[in-house]
């Protein structure tokens, strides 16, 4: 749910970016008619671009998933035990003297 929400936000941000580009083109066309120099996009477009930046940043950070911890002592990364060395497993251990549940059978 939250993911699709931020995905929608991302789509809106892209649409807004297109809108900003379109407005700038229109503005330049207008300047050509009034024969003024183009010194930069109008203030409204700059504001829209700033908003797009924020929204797309939000979408880009939330849609792909959660961050992973890089700290060595976080629960995800802290190694608490090593794998049993299964390749070096030996079978004549004390378990031989205490056979586990009999009656198990493969049908």
């Amino acid at each position: 749910m939250a993911k699709s929400m931020s995905f929608v936000v991302g789509v809106i941000a892209v649409l807004m970016l297109l809108h900003a580009a379109y407005s700038t083109i229109q503005y330049r066309a207008l300047l050509k008619i009034t024969e003024d120099e183009f010194s930069g996009p109008p203030f409204e477009v700059l504001l829209e671009l700033a908003l797009v930046l924020v929204l797309s940043l939000f979408a880009g950070l939330t849609v792909p998933g959660n961050f992973r911890s890089i700290l060595p002592d976080s629960d995800e990364n802290r190694v608490v035990s090593l794998p049993a060395n299964m390749n070096f497993m030996i079978f004549n251990h004390r378990g031989k003297a205490f056979p586990t549940e009999t009656g198990l059978k493969l049908n």
């Binding site: 079978f91 586990t100 198990l104 059978k105």
Partner: peptide, 21 residues
């Protein structure tokens, strides 16, 4: 996996059956 576990538990019959399969 079960065959190796059976070997470790000394249930040789089960292991043998698994290996046969």
């Amino acid at each position: 996996q079960v065959a190796i576990a059976a070997l470790d538990c000394q249930c040789l019959d089960v292991a043998k059956d698994c290996i046969k399969v």
